[in-house]
Each structure stands twice: as structure tokens, then as C-alpha cells.
Design a protein around this nucleic acid. Structure first.
Length: 731
DNA sequence: GAAATTTGCATTTTT
DNA sequence: TGCAAATTTC
């Protein structure tokens, strides 16, 4: 391969240094993925390294897929045997083969956050711990922390001395025991158990060490201790380890990512070669310089600077809005203007914010102005109740020990197996040391359960047992069959719930997802399908070609780029958050986040902040973000809504900046749901209620300054509602 | 049990 | 403020 022609000098060096430890410090937009894919292609094509000897680890499935596609396009199907995967899917793959050595069975299920929550609640109940002092999420965080640091329950118990800490360790111990009994693993366990497996079975470790002669890890700055340790174990035989990362982009410390992993890489691996990729191909020079200046304020970082390849570009546009609404209007207006005058498309815009709750105002304004947008990362499809129920059915069938899933669906749809019955079954199961499901099968042995309930239980367990015989069906067929057998669809079809229709559609969508998966993975099993949906995130599904503006948190934007970026809510207290002002580490992480946000922009960068904003129900004056002040003023251009602008450079000159087009389809915001003016309330008008669905106003009543309306709902009869208090919208 | 009402609480979430 | 969870009410 003619690498010299397609790579720059540093990239070339990175691509040809194959033996021994290599640290690639790759700044944002420096052609990192390109370098890695050529590196792999070079190894296979020029050096005759076998593809099955290569392991490449990424953080997202999307990144893994992209890398695989790009390698494939360079060298063709030989790439197929290469392991390119996320940490988690790598571990699942190993564990599915070997976990029996740890006493689990290979049909183990993976628990998501919600399953974890349920399990922790169970643990707290068993240990009789008052939930006032021990918040479930806090417990999960602590447990996760232990696992990220590879601390086993026994070690946690012996190391903790504080009163609370001891209790956390106790919960951790029980939680692990329960997970084991359920033959289930949580996300952190996938990595934890793989390490445990390697420690316990040196022959297994040796096998993988020998297999993976060449290892690459992307986004190394965001690895936690457990991941670091796992990589270290795997790489210790050949030490052909290449890690790629950017300490300035470490934004997951709060989740256990240890920035020292990248900062100390040279200490960990003797004779490390370091290559810096500092040429930035993505952003205009002004944008890049701003990013460089901001990040310079961090103390703990590797010395490097991003050098622009592109021209200066326009100045960074800063807009001070009087309030949140104006901020959103401004953004909407700019989008419309740029599309009209400068040939941009909707998909060229990314709106980035610190917290998901900030998206609301933008959505509202975009809806009103018919700007198509896609929201990433708020309500995840697989987190909807009905979808989780279907998944719980699958998990119950696949893994007979999974009590969490079984409990979830045992009375869903309602079939008369309530809490009392489940408690009886559970007690029997404990006494006889069998699983809850086996207790159900043997329910006739339990004297306290009536014959009628017993029959229902038998009927239910028979369905599950029958389904276990049908696991060779295609996933979509399998899902359809189970739903039919338990009458789930019929339940929704006859349900009065106004959400029923949506739920039904979601389930159909879920079946479609199964069909899609089958098409892409011929002959795949239900287990594979299930695994895929548990391990795939929202950002993975981000479609860069969809014609819509993207709204997402800065965190989710890592690895993406947009021709035009709006970073909104640039105010102290939001970004950086209040906490950062007390904790320097948090401030630095926040600054890195700011750096990530800025470097997403290719051509234009907008930073907006509001003078007044409502936060937690309180309206207060706001100050502009500390980070904004860190950008040299000669790179900034203050803009105003209408069109004129003021340049805040030293010379104080004023230029004109894109006039507001009169044809811009712009409406001032109209009613928000709760301040509907009374004269709009007319009999016959159609409304939508949050819980009751659609209906029509049939009577209006005015008394003591309140307006009450009577609405005949399509599915829920007539309700009397107070205007302004009830969540309705006109349709 | 479901619906209405009150209370509480509030970053970021690659898997 | 706006929401989800907890609690009370019907």
C-alpha cells in the first residue's frame, strides 16, 4: 500500500509502527480513524499479519462498525476475521464461550440499568435497609465504582471502615450473589467477570493472549481501571499494544474513566513510542484557535496544540439573548437564514447543550417554525415499558434463572398472578433452593395457593416451557408467537388506555427491528438479537444522513462533526455547572467538554447565552460562561438578532452581518399549553390530553375566575377539566 | 386497581 | 418549572 500518499507524516509513522507499545495522541479532527484503518490494512496486506490476530477495541458500536466498514473497503473480506468491537461486546463474546468456568451458564442475560434498580431494591429489602438513607441510584453508583476499580465484594467489605461504606459493601456483596443466582450480569460485570475469568483460568488468558498478537484501543482516555487492566492482561504477552486517544477529550471521569491511563501509558509500557497527530483537518482556524486557547487553561494535560490546515474562516459568533426563548428563536432564525442564503441543509446543523432538559425550548420553536429536528438520547426506544416487557419475555425464556425478568412479566398482561401469589412462590423457592420459575412449575405442591390460581400459573409456565422448544425460530417469528400466546396484542387492542395505540405501534416497530436484524445477520438467534439491543445505544443509531437538525448533549456529540455548531446555554451555573466552581477537577473536565463541543464545528461556531433564564422554576439573571471569556476576543464577533453586529476586537470596528430576511418564515411563539386564552375555548374544538388522548370540548363553564371545560374523549368518556391546570393542547 | 393528587427533586450516561 | 415517583382517593 502506498501509505505515504494517503497519510501525512505523523499519520504515516503511526501506521507503520506495528511492533511494541505505541501511544497515538490524536487531537480532535486529526484523521484518527483514517490512520487506524490504514494501519490495520497495512498490517494485513503488506505485513501478512493474519486478521484473526488483531483486536481493535472502540467505545461505541457505531465506531466499531465504521472502522470495520472502512477496513473492509480497503482490503476486502479478509477483514471479517478481525475482532473489532466495543469492550462490552468483546467481553460478551469471550464470556459466552467460557463463563461456565465461573459457574454461570452461557445463556446468561445482561441486566440494564432498570433491571439493576429492581435488583438493588430487592437487596435493600432483604437487608432491611431504610431507603431514606440509601438511595437506589447511589447504591448503583457505588457498586459500579467498585467494579470499575476491580474491587471484589470481599475486598470491599474488608477495606471499608466508615459506617455507610460498610453498608454499601454489604449491599454490593448481596447484589453480586443475586446476580449470580439469576445467571445474569450487569454491564460492568461483563468486563469484571472477564478479568476474573482470566485470573482464575490462566490457560484461557494464555489462549487469548496468543490469539491477539496485535491490540488497538481507541478513545483510551476514557477507559476505566478495569478496562485498563483487561487490556494490560491481554497485551502482556506480545506488548504490541497501540492506544489512541486525546487526554483533552476525557469527559467521562465522573463515570470512572481514569485519565491517568493515558497520561501514564509510557510508564506502564517500557519503550513506548509516542506519536502526536496535531494537524486538524476538520475545523476552520478560528474555531481551532479558540479551542486551543480554552483548553490551555487546564493544568493536567499533555502538551500539544492542534494546528489548522484550513483557512481562518469566520469569527466565532456570540449571541446574548435576553431569555431562553430568544436564544432558541435566534438559533432557528440562523438556521433558516443559512439554508436560504448559504446553501446549507438541515443535517449540517448540530445544537449542543450541557443537559438534556435544555432541548425543550428548541423543540418548541422548531416545531412552530417547521424545522425538522432529531433529538438524540432522551427517551430511548428500548426503555419504553411495552418494549421492556417484550424483552423481559425473551429473557425469561432464554434464561430460566432470570427472576427479575420473570417477575416483570408474570402478571403482564394481567392474568391474576399478583404480588401475594408471587411471594408465596418465592418463599417456596427459597425453602427448596430452587428458582422462582421452578417453583411455578411445581406450584401444585404449595398448599396456600388455590387451585384456580394454580391453574393460571401452570398455564403461564407451560407457555414459557413451550417457547423454549421453539428457540430455533427467527427472532421476529419468535416474538410474534410469544406475544400471541400470552395475548399481549389482544390486551392492547381491547385496552382503554389512550396510549394503547402508541404501545401497539412501538411493538410493531420492535418486530420490524427484529426483521431488520435478521436481514443483516442471516440465521441469527434470538440470543444474538437480544444481545444486540442490550448493547446498542442511542447514538449508535444516529443517522447522519437524515435531513434534520441534530439536538444532543455535548457528551453524545463526541466523535461527530457538523458544518455548523450551536453551543447553547453558555452560562455559569449551566456550563460550567455550579459544582465546578468548588471542585477544580470538575472544572477541568467541564472545560474538556467545552473543548469537545467547540471542535465538533467545521465551518461556523455559534455560542449563545441568555441574560435571564428560568432554572428549576426560578427566573434569575445569568452571567456568561467562564469558558466564553477564555476565548480571545479577536476571535469573537458579537451578533444581535436583527442583523447588525458589534465586533468586540480591539479596534472596535463594526461590520454588517447577514440581514434578517423578511421572507423568513418566522412566527413569534404562540400559546404554550397552560396559558390558553379563554376565547379559544369553543365547543366543538378538538383537544389532546396527556393521559386521556384526543377528544372534543362539549361544554364550557366559568366560575370563580376559573374556566372548566367538559371534554368528550374518544376513548375515555367525558371528563371535567380545569383550564390551565390540565395538560391539554389544541389540535 | 386505576386515577387523582401530592411530594420531592433536579448534570453529563460510549455499554 | 416540570417530571416522575409516592401516596391517597375513589
Amino acid at each position: 500500500m502506498d501509505l505515504k500518499n494517503v497519510l501525512n507524516e505523523e499519520q504515516y509513522e503511526a501506521a507503520i509502527n506495528i511492533e511494541g507499545p505505541l501511544l497515538i495522541l490524536a487531537g480532535a479532527g486529526s484523521g484518527k480513524t483514517r490512520t487506524i484503518t490504514y494501519r490495520i490494512a497495512h498490517m494485513i496486506k503488506d505485513l501478512d499479519i493474519k486478521s484473526y490476530q488483531i483486536l481493535a477495541i472502540t467505545f461505541t458500536n457505531k465506531a466499531a462498525k465504521e472502522m470495520k466498514d472502512r477496513v473492509r473497503s480497503l482490503i476486502g473480506e479478509v477483514a471479517e476475521n478481525m475482532w473489532i468491537s466495543t469492550f462490552h461486546s468483546l467481553c460478551v463474546r469471550i464470556l459466552r464461550r467460557e463463563i461456565e468456568k465461573l459457574g454461570y451458564t452461557n445463556s446468561f442475560t445482561i441486566y440494564d440499568f432498570f433491571d439493576q434498580k429492581t435488583l438493588v431494591k430487592q437487596c435493600l429489602e432483604i437487608l432491611k435497609i431504610n431507603t431514606d438513607n440509601f438511595d437506589v441510584s447511589e447504591v448503583i453508583r457505588r457498586i459500579s465504582k467498585y467494579k470499575n476499580e476491580f474491587v471484589k465484594p470481599i475486598e470491599a467489605l474488608s477495606r471499608e471502615s466508615g459506617y455507610r461504606e460498610k453498608i454499601f459493601a454489604q449491599i454490593y456483596e448481596l447484589y453480586e450473589k443475586k446476580l449470580f443466582e439469576n445467571n445474569s450480569l450487569d454491564f460492568d460485570n461483563l468486563i469484571f467477570k472477564t478479568i476474573e475469568l482470566f485470573e482464575k483460568c490462566p490457560d484461557v488468558l494464555t489462549f487469548y493472549q496468543s490469539k491477539f498478537k496485535y491490540i488497538m484501543v481507541d478513545e483510551y482516555q476514557d477507559t476505566n481501571y478495569a478496562q485498563y487492566y483487561l487490556v494490560k492482561l491481554l497485551a502482556s504477552k506480545y506488548k504490541n499494544i497501540c492506544v489512541v486517544g486525546d487526554d483533552d477529550q476525557c469527559i467521562y471521569q465522573w463515570r470512572g474513566a481514569d485519565i491517568n491511563n493515558i497520561l501514564d501509558f509510557e510508564k506502564d509500557y517500557k519503550d513506548t513510542k509516542i506519536i502526536k497527530l496535531e494537524k486538524n483537518y476538520r475545523s476552520k482556524a478560528n474555531i481551532l484557535n479558540a479551542a486551543n486557547k480554552v483548553i490551555l487553561n487546564n493544568l493536567r494535560r499533555k502538551d500539544k496544540v492542534l494546528r489548522p490546515i484550513n483557512s481562518e474562516g469566520e469569527n466565532i459568533k456570540v449571541f446574548k439573548a435576553s431569555n431562553a426563548e430568544e436564544e432558541a428563536l435566534f438559533v432557528a432564525n440562523e438556521i433558516v437564514r443559512l439554508i436560504k442564503n448559504n446553501g446549507y441543509e438541515y443535517k449540517d446543523f448540530g445544537i449542543l447543550y450541557r443537559t438534556n432538559s435544555q432541548s425543550r425550548m428548541f423543540e418548541e420553536i422548531f416545531v412552530k417554525n417547521q424545522i425538522p429536528y432529531k433529538l438524540i438520547g432522551v427517551v430511548r426506544f428500548y426503555e419504553r415499558k411495552e418494549i421492556k416487557d417484550v424483552i423481559a419475555y425473551l429473557k425469561t425464556i432464554i434464561n430460566p434463572s432470570d427472576e427479575i425478568s420473570l417477575r416483570r412479566i408474570v402478571n403482564e398482561p394481567k392474568r391474576g398472578i399478583g404480588d401475594v401469589t408471587v411471594d408465596k412462590l418465592s418463599e417456596y423457592a427459597n425453602q427448596n433452593s430452587i428458582s422462582l420459575f421452578d417453583a411455578m412449575v411445581a406450584c401444585s405442591e404449595i398448599s396456600t395457593i388455590s387451585a384456580r390460581t394454580g391453574n393460571t400459573i401452570k398455564e403461564f409456565s407451560k407457555i414459557i416451557l413451550d417457547m423454549r422448544e421453539k428457540m430455533d425460530l427467527k427472532p421476529s417469528e419468535f416474538i410474534k408467537l410469544i406475544l400471541e400466546k400470552v395475548g399481549y396484542m389482544t390486551f392492547f387492542k381491547t385496552s382503554k388506555d389512550s396510549e394503547a395505540q402508541t404501545r401497539l405501534e412501538n411493538i410493531e416497530e420492535f418486530i420490524n427491528a427484529a426483521v431488520n436484524f435478521e436481514d443483516l445477520n442471516y440465521g441469527c438467534s434470538i440470543e444474538e438479537f437480544l444481545e444486540n439491543i442490550t448493547l446498542v445505544s442511542e447514538v449508535d443509531k444516529y443517522d447522519e444522513n437524515a435531513s434534520a437538525v441534530t439536538l444532543m448533549t455535548i457528551h453524545s456529540s463526541k466523535g461527530l462533526e457538523f458544518p455548523v455548531v450551536f453551543m447553547v446555554g453558555m452560562e455559569n451555573g449551566i456550563f460550567p455547572s455550579n459544582k465546578c466552581f468548588d471542585e477544580p477537577d470538575e472544572m477541568e473536565e467541564s472545560r474538556r467538554l467545552c473543548y469537545v463541543g467547540i471542535t465538533r464545528a467545521k465551518n461556523l461556531l455559534y455560542l449563545t447565552h441568555a441574560n435571564v433564564r428560568m432554572v428549576y422554576g426560578e427566573t434569575n439573571f445569568r452571567t456568561k460562561s467562564k469558558f466564553l471569556m477564555e476565548i480571545p476576543s479577536n476571535l469573537i464577533m458579537n451578533v444581535t438578532f436583527g442583523g447588525e453586529e458589534r465586533v468586540s476586537n480591539s479596534s472596535g470596528e463594526v461590520r454588517t452581518f447577514g440581514k434578517f430576511s423578511p421572507t423568513t418564515p418566522f412566527n413569534k411563539p404562540k400559546e404554550i399549553q397552560n396559558d390558553i386564552s379563554e376565547d379559544e375555548v369553543k365547543i366543538g374544538r378538538k383537544v389532546h390530553h396527556k393521559t386521556f388522548g384526543e377528544g372534543m370540548i362539549c361544554k364550557v363553564e366559568n366560575s370563580d375566575g376559573k374556566t372548566r371545560i367538559y371534554v368528550a374523549f374518544d376513548n375515555n368518556g367525558v371528563k371535567k377539566l380545569e383550564l390551565g391546570k390540565t395538560p391539554i393542547k389544541f389540535i
